[in-house]
Simulated scan of single mutants.
Amino acid sequence: MNKCNLFIYRLVLPLLATFLLGCQPTGDAPIERWQHAAEGAYAATISNDATLSVVSSIHHGISVWDLQKNALKFTWSQEQNSADNLVLAIDISDNNSHALTANRESFALWNIETGLSEGYWKVRESNIRDIAVANNGNYLLIGKSNGTVVHVTMRNGRRLEFLGHTEKINSVDMLPNGRIAISGGNDFIANVWDTQTGQVIYKFNHPSRVTKVALDPQGRYAFTADSKKDANIWNLKTGQLIQNLKYTNRQEVFSSVQFSPDGTQLLTGAPTRKISLWSIGTGDRIQSWRVTPRKDIRPAGAVVYSAAFRDNNSIITESSSGYAELWQLPN
Rank of each mutant, 00 (worst) to 15 (best):
M1V: 14
N5T: 03
F7A: 05
I8Q: 09
Y9N: 14
R10Y: 11
L21C: 07
L21T: 12
Q24C: 15
P25G: 02
D28C: 03
P30N: 10
R33Y: 00
Q35P: 07
A37E: 06
A37I: 02
E39Y: 15
A43Y: 06
A44V: 01
N48V: 12
D49Q: 00
A50G: 09
L52S: 09
S53E: 01
S56F: 10
S56W: 02
I62G: 02
S63Y: 12
V64M: 08
D66E: 10
K69R: 14
K69D: 05
K69A: 13
A71F: 12
L72T: 08
T75F: 12
E79A: 14
D84F: 13
L86R: 08
V87S: 08
D91Y: 01
D94T: 13
D94Y: 02
N95A: 08
L100R: 10
L100P: 07
T101K: 08
N103G: 09
F107H: 03
L109D: 05
N111I: 11
T114R: 02
G115V: 02
E118Q: 10
E118Y: 03
W121I: 14
V123S: 12
D130H: 10
N135K: 09
L140T: 11
L140D: 05
N146A: 06
H151L: 04
H151C: 08
V152C: 06
R159F: 04
F162N: 01
G164M: 04
T166D: 12
E167R: 00
S171H: 03
V172G: 10
N177D: 11
N177F: 02
N186H: 14
A190I: 10
D194G: 11
Q196E: 15
V200H: 08
I201V: 10
Y202F: 05
K203W: 00
K203Q: 15
N205V: 11
P207A: 02
R209S: 12
K212H: 02
K212M: 01
L215K: 00
D216V: 04
Q218N: 14
R220W: 09
R220K: 00
S227V: 00
K228S: 06
N232M: 14
I233Q: 06
L236Y: 00
K237N: 11
T238E: 10
I242C: 05
I242K: 13
K246F: 07
N249Y: 12
R250F: 15
Q258Y: 04
F259H: 08
D262C: 07
T264C: 13
Q265A: 06
G269T: 01
P271M: 04
K274P: 00
I275A: 05
W278C: 05
W278I: 03
G281S: 13
R290N: 14
K295A: 15
K295V: 14
D296I: 01
A300M: 06
G301L: 11
G301Q: 12
V304T: 06
Y305A: 04
A307E: 00
A307H: 08
N313I: 01
E318I: 00
S319N: 08
S321Q: 02
Y323C: 03
E325A: 00
L326F: 01
Q328R: 07
N331W: 01
